[in-house]
């Protein structure tokens, strides 16, 4: 089940700077905590986040254990052409969650 929330303007003028926000439901378990039974809770975090604009990467970030659960990323890019923004979150196991949004540029 997809648990992502991305916010991209539906329309923009060419050359305009647009704000993009992306959030994903994820525990971001650090691996440093103990469970009630005294055993370490295995680490489970998102390692890499990237955003492609019509196939070209415009933003990426490395995530680390100190980040909160359900990480929220905000960044900006320049609207160049009508197309699709694709978001990818890659976790420790290599599992990839994706989301996408369309933007119309005039």
């Amino acid at each position: 089940m997809s648990r992502t929330l991305v916010s991209v303007p539906k329309t923009a003028r060419a050359g305009e700077v647009i704000d993009i926000r992306a959030m994903i439901a994820h525990p971001m378990e650090t691996g440093y905590r103990m469970g009630p039974n005294g055993q370490a809770i295995p680490r489970k975090i998102i390692r890499h986040f990237a955003c492609d604009y019509d196939g070209e990467e415009v933003f990426s970030a490395e995530f680390h254990p100190a980040m909160s659960a359900n990480p929220f990323v905000a960044f900006s890019t320049v609207a160049t052409k009508t197309g699709t923004l694709t978001f990818r979150w890659t976790d420790d196991d290599g599992k990839v969650e994706t989301a996408s949004a369309e933007i119309a540029v005039s």
């Binding site: 089940m1 648990r3 929330l5 916010s7 926000r21 959030m23 439901a25 359900n70 929220f72 905000a74």
Partner: peptide
């Protein structure tokens, strides 16, 4: 709603 993390659960509830 784009930054409220509670909306992730609202989305899940919706599906």
């Amino acid at each position: 709603d784009g930054s409220n993390p509670g909306m992730l659960w609202v989305l899940q509830g919706g599906s």
